[in-house]
Design a protein around this nucleic acid. Structure first.
Length: 122
DNA sequence: GCAATGACGCTCT
DNA sequence: CAGAGCGCCATTG
């Protein structure tokens, strides 16, 4: 059960929606051919330590979104999709390789392809 | 409101 | 390098 429609209808609060937008705009800043970790996205977006929420936000992304979600991988340089969803990592890997990201086995070198953020946000 | 469930990260074994 | 434990937090039943 992959987050059954986590976006459902609008809520009166809207605060979490703001969080999602914050995360999405940060993911959009990842340069082509580079990758960022969930924790890094959370940190840059202004929510250090909330890597899980980043994954949650990405899981809520509708199919065909313009957000480059494939450039977000876990801190181990591996594709989290491959761990949870069977076959899901294949698409992500192909997208990354098409952008020039090189896989070493089933892992990406964050040392070389990691996104240098500089600590700026939004 | 509580218990269970995650596209996670870090530390210890 | 792989696995287990613990922390964090939004969403769901």
């Amino acid at each position: 059960m992959p987050v059954r429609g986590a976006r459902k209808g609008h809520r009166g609060t809207g605060s979490h929606e703001m969080t999602f937008q914050r995360i999405y705009s940060t993911v959009r800043r990842i340069p082509l051919g580079r990758v960022a970790t969930y924790g890094q996205i959370a940190k840059v977006a202004g929510f250090p330590g909330r890597a899980r929420q980043v994954g949650y936000a990405l899981a809520a992304l509708p199919n065909g979104s313009t957000v480059p979600w494939h450039r977000v991988i876990n801190a181990q340089g591996r594709l989290s999709l491959e761990r949870t969803v069977a076959g899901g990592g294949v698409v992500q890997r192909q997208r990354l390789e098409r952008e020039g990201v090189v896989f070493e086995g089933s892992r990406v070198s964050l040392q070389r392809f990691g996104w240098k953020t500089r600590g700026r946000r939004a």
